[in-house]
Structure formats: structure tokens, C-alpha cells
Design a binder for these strands. Structure first.
Length: 801
RNA sequence: GCGGUCGUGGCGGAAUCGGCAGACGCGCUACUUUGAGGUGGUAGUGGGACAUCCCGUGGGGGUUCAAGUCCCCCCGACCGCACCA
């Protein structure tokens, strides 16, 4: 019988659909398991071969859990708001809603053809008003708690298109579409106070099972540092506050630097002697991104603010103040004290501008480079701090500053508040009304969802406002508070909004009255296993943890953290080892693979391709190996015998393989799980037959990986129900051990032979057997034995002179 | 620049705690089957004048009876960096 994968796959996908085989039950008394993968952005290109890597992996986990008896929730949906759809809609004059519908239909058909066991009854879409109603509701709660506020922020502004650009649309400092000059422009933007949660977002990482590199990335991104804020008096008669992590080096501060956007430049305008130079520098800085500005490799630039000096609080010395783009207005206070002796960037700057470099920590050679090691140094040239270690000096100076009223200890985070406004059409409207009398007023919850208005043009307006600003019927409204005339907020939310809480909606996706019922949330949350890309670690993952914590604070959810476990898959690269992209011409279309090899082979190959956590290049020729494996599994039907127990020669290898596959799935080592099944198959085919028990167990083990073929074989074996609903195979640990083991024998660390030993023999007996071996005896002849090492089941090493 | 990851045959990759490097698969070679095609099977496959020896996990040092694995230095590659998602 031929293995007709396309027939088999179509047949079982239809049966699973009809029977709703993978629908999560609403029986909250059963043990639950919530497996989650990041829902895709339904782009116009269709599914990428990278998507199924993550989806298949957790599909394997979900299917195994069902076989183990859990009530499993494995849902899927669409993160469909966003820039590419909007740009496509503008270009082709199609409504983004229609574009989205088409893309979703294509993605869904592609996902279904992979045989993924999603519960399609719980499908969600962030652009559905019934969904974004609750995204808006969450925003209102944030607003009411003071966590949403307006702030002047700089945006990328294309001077020729007159449009606010996303960072991605700025390439080498010019507009991606027209090549026009891009500058920073200040706009009033909605912000979310994620910084208020910074400490908790770090602390609660202790309570979750995330892979270590995810935790590390999040911690570094949040970037907690302890230091001090210090007030420097200025000759302008005011105080300039700086933030430093090295208050111990205060005596070494020989100048100050403020960011080109610092408000004091305006404030000191009448005292500054070189305003033109300063203005020119500010204009230059406005063209650069933070990334370009802080690049250490680049030459330091800056301009002295002539006419105003700072006064070092510890020694009263007047020191110059510069503006330079390596100081960012968004971090700390936007101003620093520069200690060139002990900071690399300050050192370079001082060298370039001929500023004095004073050594205040001994231990390095500051004529060559800045000495930044704070472990070993001793304070010098620092008055009362002389002789102290850096650690002691930090404490001493901070308490002195506090006593003098010139500073205080300060914890700072690199994490910045979340810019929540977009001047775009295809996003959730922000449900706020601006009233001249009452200010920013939240829309009453009863008016949600605030729908996107139907329009013909999605182009932003001339002055960079959102397209919604051009629609008078949308903008003009009445104030919910005083009833007077008012204007709606016209900015929309970023794509991150809808994805920050979607895992909650899956718990109760059709609820009309709440984002999800408390009962459903309490049962399903937290997500037991969440897999996604490393690129989402610092934005999506952090944003959704922040929203979850907020919803915990207001009593919507009962657990502090949304995801109990987070893992991450590596990227699938093109055959040439580079990232797959249209421009590189190395894109593999999953549809072609499924058509030619079938979904089971595709799934198996994606799991076999390499270490799940690492990136791996696609290889069309390697797929054949997985196809051959499945064909052999299929072919076993022709050599079936009766029998309800493993044959003795296969017993150990069966138990071992079941153990290995069971454990490897849990630790994401899908590649070695498949290798073990291939090895077991080789052992079976060596015997020429397979009995019913062996075959049934083998296909059960393989079922989560290749669900269609195994379901069909199960059916062919005369079973009536679904294999997907049968029971997972068990192993007996006692039967995983062989009676004898082969042990390598080394002399002086070099392999000289191998011996067979009964498992559990003593060291003495083992070494005696080794010495009795003719070859080993020959090597040992005439040598003096210095040491004998025996590692049971592994190795014997005899050290001789 | 900051942060993260990685370097093993011709290729993808294995190698719980430091214990036989190269599992499993691709490719290749020989034979074989079917007859033809890109099918199936058997055997071989890290390198070296390749029968028991020597060398081999990016490079150099170190620790150890024993190092792909631990430590130090160097080289190289990849990913993210807040309005792409």
C-alpha cells in the first residue's frame, strides 16, 4: 500500500474539524494545560517557514498533554493591526479591513494544512471591535489610575512626505520611501508608565520559569542602576541636577555635559555667548537616532555653553558645561558630571577638547586610558574620601551630599515609558475626548467600542496628525463630563496594545460583558508554556507582563505573572545561511513543501532541523530523510504480526526510547527525540517484523510529531476512536537498563580497549577484568600503576609511569 | 556602542555531572534489486601511504587521571536595540 499523504492528511484534518477534536472543554474541575504560541501578524506574504517551527513544537506539547489526560487550551488568533497592512491599503486603495480579511483567510488555510491542533472556536482578531473594545477598556483603566499621560516626545519626521515615520522607515537617516531628510520633531504623545512597574518586573522574574537568556535580556533592558542625583550650582544662579552611578568620583569631575535637548539651554538663552553655534549643534543632533548618538566608536562632538559654568559642590571649582549628543535627555536627568579619568566616553571627550583629566581612583594609568574598574581602586585627590575603597567612598559621599542638601541616593532604570500614540489609521482609537474646560476626559465604558470610522483615505494629514484628524464627524463630539463641545483624540494605539492581553481573551473569547469571566481566567491562567521569538523578549513580553500586573492590581486576574514558562525558538534561515527575505531571494514557501512532501514530513523536518533554540539553515535535501522515515513507518503495515508484548530483543530499546522521547519533548529537544525514534525504527526493521503492541506504541509515540499518518495507521489497525484521544505510552525505569555495559578502558587517558561488564560490578572487579584483557595487559607490561579510576558504566582509566 | 547568542566531518547537527567525539539524518563511494529516470536494499564513510599508531571540536595558554564541556587571552560569525511585528 502506498503512503498517500495528501489523501490521508485531508481526511484526518476534516475529521478533527467535524468532531471538534481539539476544543478545550469548559469543565473547570479537570487538570488544565494552557499552551501558547505568539499569534502571527497576518502579512501579505503568507506564512513563513519560521512560523511552523514554534507552532509545531507547542502542538507536540499540547498533543502529548491531551494524551496524558489534561484539558488542553491551545488557541490561535491574529495580531492584525499594523503598519504594513495600512501601507498596502494606501498603495492599492483597498480598505485595511479587507486586506486583513484576505490575509487572515490565507494564513488560516495554511495553518490548517499543517494539522496543528488549535481550538479554532476560540480564534480571535485584534482588529475585531468586539476584541478591541476590551483593549480600549484596559486603556481607560490605566488612564483612571494615572498610568496613561501626555508628554512631549520627539518623533521621526520626514520633511518631504510630511509624515511621522516609524524607526524602520528611516534608513541611514533618510526616509525609506522618498529619500527625504528625516528630523526629530516634538509632538505631544500618549505615554504609559511602565517605569512605575520596573522594580516589580525585575523582582517577579524570580517566580517564573523563563529560559535564562530571556530573564537576562529583560533585566538588562530594564537596566536598574543605583547611584545618586547631585545638584551643581551654576554661575547662572540656579541648580543643575545630574545623575551618576559613580558619586565616589565627584572630585574628578572637571566639566559637565547636558543633552542638546536639555531645557536649561532655553532657560539660559540670554547668558549664552555662542547661541548660533549651539543652535547649529542642536539641529545636527536632531537628525541622529539615539543609537547613532551613543555609538562609542564614533568621534565625540560637542559645543561649550559659553557664559555659564557649573560649580563642583565638593570643592567649589567652576567647571565648563558642554552640550553633546552622547548624553540622552531620556536617561537620568539628561545631564552628567564628566569624570574623564574614570569614564571611557568622558575620557575621549576630554582628550578631544583638551579638558583636564584628574585621577581620583588609583590603580590604572590615566595617561593612557580611563580607569573604570571599581573593585580594586583606592581613592586619591578626593579630600575626605582619600584612602577609601570605591565602595566605601560611594556611601560616604552620598551621606555627605544628603547632609549638605546637595544630593541624594537614586535608583535609575534604563527602561523608558511606553510611547503609546501612533499617527496612523489602522490601530485601536484611543478612547479619550479633549474638552477645553475639563481637559482629557475618558469615554464612558458604555460607549465602547469606539469604532474606527469608515474613510476613503488613510493618508496622514499635512501636519503629521493621524488620518482620523481629517474626519470632522469623528473628531467633533461632546464632552462626556460637561456636555460642551469637545474633540476626540485622533491618535491610535500601537500594535503592541492588542497583543498585551490576548492570552486572556482566549480563556473566554465570546464574552460580551467582560474581557473574560473571572472563573475562566482563574482556571486557565497563568499560561503554562509560552513559546515565542527572542525578538519579542524586551517589548511584547515586557509590555504584556506590565499589563497583566496592572490587571492583577485592579483585581481582573488573580495571578501576578501571565506566563509560568517562557521558551524561545531559533530562526529558520535560508539555504545560504542568511535570514530569509524576498530581497535575498531565499524564501521557502511552506505550501510548496506540504504539497510535495506532506504536512507530517514538514512538521518532522522542522523539528529535526537542529537544536530548537538555535537558528538553523533550511535544507531541501534533508527533508528527504524525514519523508523516508515516515514511509518506512507506513511500510511496517506489511510485516505486522500479532502479539501484545514487546519481543525480548526490543524490550529495553522500547522502554528507553519512550523515556527519551517523553523527556526530550519536555526539554524542547525535539531533534534528539526524532533521532531516537529513527534509531528504534532501525532496530525494528532489523528484525523483519513488528507486532501489534509494538506498532501501536510506536505510532502513539510518533503521534504528536506526525499526527496524520499515525492516526491513519491506528485506524488501519482496526481501532475505532482517535489516536489523538488515546493514552500516552509509559515506560518502566527498571527495564531501561541492560544487564551488561560496554566500558572504555584508557591508559594514561588514551583509549586502549573496551570490555563488557555486568552492570553494578565493584571497582576492584571492573579493574581486574580490564587488566586481564590481553591488549591492556600488553600496554601495562613493565609499567608502574600510579592511579586507577573507574566511573561505573562509562570508563576505566589506569595511570602508569 | 549597549545587550544577547554561537563557533564540532563535505553538510544539518549529537555528546545529563568533565568520562569512548561525530548519535540521527543528508550527501558521497562500492555492490545489489527493480529494470530503466531522482526507487528499494546491503556495506563503508573525521583526517593521515588508513590492521592495534598518530592527529583532530575557531586560535593560543592553563586546571585535571581525563576537556567540545571548566578558567584566562585572542579571532570570527549572527541577532536585538524601544514607531516593523
Amino acid at each position: 500500500m502506498k503512503y498517500d499523504f495528501s489523501e490521508i492528511e485531508k481526511k484526518w484534518q476534516q475529521i478533527w474539524d467535524e468532531q471538534k477534536a481539539f476544543a478545550a472543554e469548559n469543565d473547570f474541575t479537570k487538570p488544565k494545560y494552557y499552551a501558547l504560541v505568539e499569534f502571527p501578524y497576518p502579512s501579505g506574504q503568507g506564512l513563513h517557514v519560521g512560523h511552523p517551527r514554534s507552532y509545531t513544537a507547542l502542538d507536540i506539547v499540547a498533543r502529548k498533554r491531551r494524551l496524558e489526560g489534561y484539558n488542553v487550551l491551545y488557541p490561535m488568533g491574529w495580531d492584525a493591526f499594523g503598519l504594513p497592512t495600512e501601507n498596502y491599503a494606501i498603495k492599492n486603495k483597498i480598505h485595511p479591513e479587507i486586506v486583513t480579511r484576505q490575509n487572515v483567510a490565507r494564513f488560516k488555510q495554511q495553518l490548517k494544512s499543517l494539522g496543528l491542533s488549535f481550538d479554532w472556536d476560540r480564534e480571535i482578531n485584534t482588529t475585531d471591535p468586539e476584541y478591541y473594545k476590551w483593549t480600549q477598556w484596559i486603556f481607560l483603566q490605566l488612564f483612571k489610575k494615572g498610568l496613561a499621560y501626555k508628554k512631549e516626545m520627539s518623533v521621526n519626521w520626514c520633511t518631504s512626505c510630511k509624515v511621522v515615520l516609524a524607526n524602520e522607515e528611516v534608513v541611514n537617516g533618510v526616509c525609506e520611501r522618498c529619500g527625504g531628510e528625516v528630523v526629530h520633531k516634538v509632538k505631544s504623545q500618549w505615554m504609559l508608565k511602565i517605569t512605575e512597574y520596573a522594580q516589580r518586573l525585575i523582582d517577579d522574574l524570580n517566580d517564573v520559569n523563563y529560559i535564562e537568556r530571556v530573564k537576562t535580556s529583560q533585566k538588562n533592558w530594564i537596566g536598574r542602576s543605583t547611584g545618586a542625583e547631585v545638584d551643581f550650582d551654576t554661575t547662572a544662579g540656579d541648580k543643575l541636577t545630574i545623575y551618576t552611578t559613580r558619586p565616589d568620583t565627584l572630585f574628578g569631575a572637571t566639566y559637565m555635559v547636558i543633552s542638546p535637548e536639555h531645557p536649561y539651554i532655553e532657560k539660559w538663552a540670554d547668558k549664552l555667548e555662542n547661541p548660533e553655534e549651539i543652535k547649529a549643534y542642536q539641529a545636527e543632533a536632531a537628525k541622529k537616532s539615539d543609537f547613532e548618538r551613543t555609538e562609542l566608536a564614533k568621534e565625540k562632538t560637542g559645543v561649550e555653553l559659553k557664559g555659564v559654568c557649573g560649580i563642583n559642590p565638593v570643592n567649589g571649582k567652576e567647571i565648563p558645561i558642554f552640550i553633546s549628543d552622547y548624553v540622552l535627555v531620556s536617561y537620568g536627568t539628561g545631564a552628567i558630571m564628566a569624570v574623564p579619568g574614570h569614564d571611557t566616553r568622558d575620557y575621549e571627550f576630554a582628550k578631544k577638547f583638551g579638558l583636564p583629566i584628574v585621577e581620583v581612583v588609583q590603580g590604572g594609568d590615566i595617561t593612557k586610558e580611563a580607569f573604570t574598574d571599581c573593585e580594586t581602586g583606592v581613592m586619591v585627590n578626593s579630600g575626605m574620601l582619600d584612602g577609601m575603597t570605591v565602595e566605601e567612598a560611594k556611601k560616604a559621599i552620598v551621606s555627605w551630599l544628603e547632609k549638605e542638601g546637595k544630593g541624594h541616593p537614586k535608583v535609575n532604570f534604563k527602561l523608558r515609558d511606553w510611547v503609546f500614540s501612533r499617527q496612523r489609521y489602522w490601530g485601536e482609537p484611543i478612547p479619550i475626548v479633549y474638552c477645553e474646560k475639563c481637559g482629557y476626559v475618558p469615554l464612558p465604558e458604555s460607549e465602547l467600542p469606539l469604532r474606527l470610522p469608515e474613510v476613503d483615505s488613510y493618508e496622514p494629514t499635512e501636519d503629521g496628525e493621524s488620518p482620523l484628524a481629517a474626519i470632522d464627524s469623528f473628531v467633533n463630539t461632546t464632552c462626556p463630563h460637561c456636555g460642551g463641545p469637545a474633540k476626540r483624540e485622533t491618535d491610535t494605539m500601537p500594535q503592541w496594545a492588542g497583543s498585551s492581553w490576548y492570552f486572556m481573551r482566549y480563556c473566554d473569547p465570546h464574552n460580551q460583558n467582560e474581557l473574560a469571566s473571572k472563573e475562566a481566567l482563574d482556571y486557565w491562567l497563568p499560561v503554562d508554556w509560552y513559546n515565542g521569538g527572542m525578538e519579542h523578549t524586551t517589548l511584547h513580553l515586557l509590555y504584556s507582563r506590565f499589563w497583566h500586573k496592572f490587571l492583577y492590581d485592579i483585581g481582573v486576574v488573580s495571578c501576578k505573572e501571565p506566563y509560568a514558562k517562557r521558551t524561545s525558538h531559533g530562526m529558520i534561515l535560508g539555504e545560504n545561511g542568511e535570514k530569509m527575505s524576498k530581497s535575498r531571494g531565499n524564501v521557502v514557501n511552506p505550501d510548496d513543501i506540504i504539497r510535495e512532501y506532506g504536512a507530517d514530513t514538514m512538521r518532522l523536518y522542522e523539528m529535526f532541523i537542529g537544536d530548537f533554540e538555535k537558528s538553523a539553515p533550511w535544507s531541501t535535501s534533508s527533508i528527504k530523510g524525514c519523508k523516508r522515515f515516515l514511509e518506512k513507518v507506513w511500510g511496517l503495515q506489511d510485516c505486522l504480526t500479532e502479539g501484545d508484548a514487546y519481543r525480548p530483543e526490543l524490550e529495553t530499546v522500547f522502554h528507553r526510547t519512550i523515556k527519551k522521547v517523553s523527556e526530550d519533548i519536555e526539554s524542547m529537544k525535539f531533534n534528539t527525540a526524532i533521532a531516537a525514534m529513527m534509531a528504534l525504527l532501525n532496530d525494528i526493521t532489523d528484525t523483519g517484523t513488528i507486532n501489534r503492541r509494538e506498532y501501536t506504541d510506536f505510532i502513539t509515540l510518533l503521534n504528536p510529531f506526525a499526527p496524520h499518518i499515525t492516526e491513519e495507521i491506528y485506524h488501519q489497525l482496526g481501532n475505532s476512536g482517535l489516536l489523538a484521544k488515546a493514552a500516552w505510552v509509559r515506560y518502566d525505569p527498571a527495564k531501561c537498563v541492560e544487564d551488561t555495559v560496554e566500558v572504555a578502558v584508557q591508559v594514561n587517558g588514551k583509549l586502549r580497549g573496551k570490555i563488557n561488564l555486568a552492570t553494578g560490578v565493584s571497582k576492584e572487579a571492573a579493574i581486574a577484568v580490564a587488566k586481564a584483557d590481553a591488549k591492556i595487559a600488553g600496554v601495562l607490561n613493565g609499567k608502574i600503576i600510579v592511579k586507577e579510576i573507574y566511573v561505573p558504566g562509562k570508563i576505566i582509566n589506569i595511570v602508569v609511569k
